[in-house]
Write a protein that binds this DNA or RNA. Structure first.
Length: 475
RNA sequence: GGUCCCGUCGUCUAGUGGUCUAGGACAUUUGGUUCUCAUCCAAAAGAUCGCGGGUUCGACUCCCGCCGGGAUCACCA
């Protein structure tokens, strides 16, 4: 394998936005190419013009960009084997389809949709009955002359087995009799997937085809085409599926999201890449934070799992929280921009300090805003809540607050460390336990019982604002 | 239904005949640190290795059967 130049591709069809399962396959394609200093290619398979979704192509690009897995060749950047959009390669497919007919590996079929439908009504699992497989040249000519619409079908062997070594699945052997004489070229002159992939993968010099297991059963068709055309087939690897929590195939039904939606939910591309990597692959204890480059180093296509993996959001959450902690505050600041109110951005220094103390409490980027709110707007503080925390009478609590105010006023150095020291001393003589003393103040400045360490909050709020909030409780 | 793939803690997995009374991670629970939460540290609980037969001195590891799950059977990809 080391002597063949590695080129992998993803070939999404723009009939929808690829969901996270498809994206994992893309990750493995990317890693495989990069591991061998090869190219990673993106080809748009838009041969199904009826189901085309206009927005899909744009989103496919955005997913790859977001995950930092930009293709080396694609419709936008181009490349030596373009075009990279199948509907722009129609003449190519036509040429090979005709060649296949000429060499007897494919045939014209004039069966009406009506007839095919009847076949299926009789038996939902019926294969094409090969009605047109043995049409005489005369019959074909007649049909052609009458202008009858036709398709081109593959003339698959009716007996024997197709065997190949699958990089993930191992040795695979499928009976040819199970295969249908699949349509290669549709009536509208557009090829089906089966013809288009084979032609494109060959012309684009794809060395490894890594794709979902849903393609496994139709691989004999593809291999038959390679052989008929006298082409060397690529190395095949069928990677397992991603399952929903109920162990059924991940689909829109269980809210299978696209990567773009996870991005909107505040997940980091690093975390998503990392998560996808561990779903079906194992490295150390499956919890190391790995960059894409590190993944390339440790990735081994032969160790891809064969069993389906269940999508577990808790693992994603863990990885995301770890990545958030790992990023420096400036970096986090930039990523947080789209998740916070615009006016917060005006106070960048303040925001950076808040990020510093809030980041270890976040699972997603979305968690920041609610946790930082009270630094930017005066919270609504109920006296009752403060008293609940202080566990003392209003009078006693007010007295404690007064001494807190004087500690702050008399403090020469308004830092968290210094404040902590001074407050600890004052608290000892106050008759309040540390918890009562600090919790009551916490509620007083934030309106909530859970915040980062009190004195860090004091410092970020600033002396003036802190005093204002504390004294306003008993006004 | 035919064909093919898969089957180790809830989840991701390690494990290729004896080192496995099955290891790690996430999640869960508990304890420690602490002004709360989180972090961090420590610990606990959690898997009759899908089931049943073989082969073998010995099987999670090999073979067979069964069961369960999945994929596929379009002029969709």
């Amino acid at each position: 394998m080391s002597d063949t130049h590695v080129r992998t591709r993803i070939a999404p069809s723009p009939t929808g936005v690829p969901h996270i399962g498809n994206t994992r396959t893309a990750l493995y394609d990317y890693l495989l190419a990069k591991k061998y200093q090869g190219e990673f290619i993106l080809r748009i398979e838009d041969t199904d013009q009826d189901r085309l979704v206009p927005e899909a192509v744009e989103k496919i690009y955005r997913i790859q960009e977001f995950l930092m897995m930009k293709p080396d060749e694609d419709p936008i950047v181009g490349g030596p084997f373009g075009p990279y959009v199948q509907t722009e390669r129609l003449n190519l497919y036509k040429e090979y389809a005709e060649e296949l007919v000429n060499i007897g590996a494919a045939y014209y079929c004039f069966c009406s949709e009506e007839r095919l439908k009847q076949l299926h009504e009789k038996d939902q699992y019926a294969k094409y009955d090969r009605h047109c497989r043995h049409l005489s040249t005369e019959e074909i000519r007649q049909n052609m002359d009458s202008g009858a619409p036709f398709v081109i079908r593959a003339k698959l062997p009716e007996t024997g087995f197709t065997t190949w070594h699958d990089l993930v699945q191992g040795k695979l052997s499928l009976p040819n009799a199970e295969c249908d004489d699949k349509v290669l070229m549709k009536t509208n002159g557009i090829p089906t997937y089966h013809l288009a992939v084979v032609v494109d993968d060959h012309l684009m010099k794809i060395s490894h085809v890594l794709r979902g297991v849903e393609w496994m059963m139709s691989t004999p068709i593809h291999l038959f085409l390679y052989e008929s055309l006298g082409w060397e087939p690529p190395i095949l690897a069928h990677v397992p599926l991603l399952l929903g929590p109920d162990k059924s195939k991940l689909s829109k039904r269980h809210g299978a999201k696209s990567v773009l939606e996870y991005a909107d939910d505040g997940y980091l591309p690093e975390a998503i890449d990392n998560f996808l990597f561990y779903l079906g692959f194992s490295y150390k204890d499956n919890s190391d934070l790995l960059t894409l480059d590190e993944m390339i180093q440790v990735f081994d296509e032969k160790k891809i799992q064969r069993q389906n993996a269940i999508f577990d959001i808790q693992k994603l959450n863990y990885l995301n929280s770890q990545w958030i902690k790992k990023l420096d505050s400036e970096d986090l600041f930039n990523r947080l921009k789209r998740f916070i109110p615009e006016n917060w951005l005006l106070e960048k220094d303040k925001l950076l300090s808040i990020i510093n103390i809030v980041k270890e409490r976040m699972f997603t980027l979305k968690d920041f805003s609610p946790a930082a709110e009270y630094f930017f707007s005066t919270p609504n503080i109920e006296k009752q809540m403060v008293l609940e925390q202080s566990a003392h009478t209003e009078e006693e609590t007010k007295k404690w607050f007064d001494s807190a105010i004087s500690v702050i006023n008399n403090s020469h150095e308004y830092t968290a460390e210094k404040l902590h020291e001074e407050f600890a001393a004052t608290q000892k003589d106050s008759g309040f336990s540390p918890k009562e003393a600090f919790m009551s103040l916490r509620v007083a400045i934030s309106g909530r019982p859970v915040t980062p360490p009190l004195f860090d909050c004091f410092v970020i709020l600033g002396k003036e604002e802190t005093l204002k909030r504390i004294s306003s409780v008993f006004d």
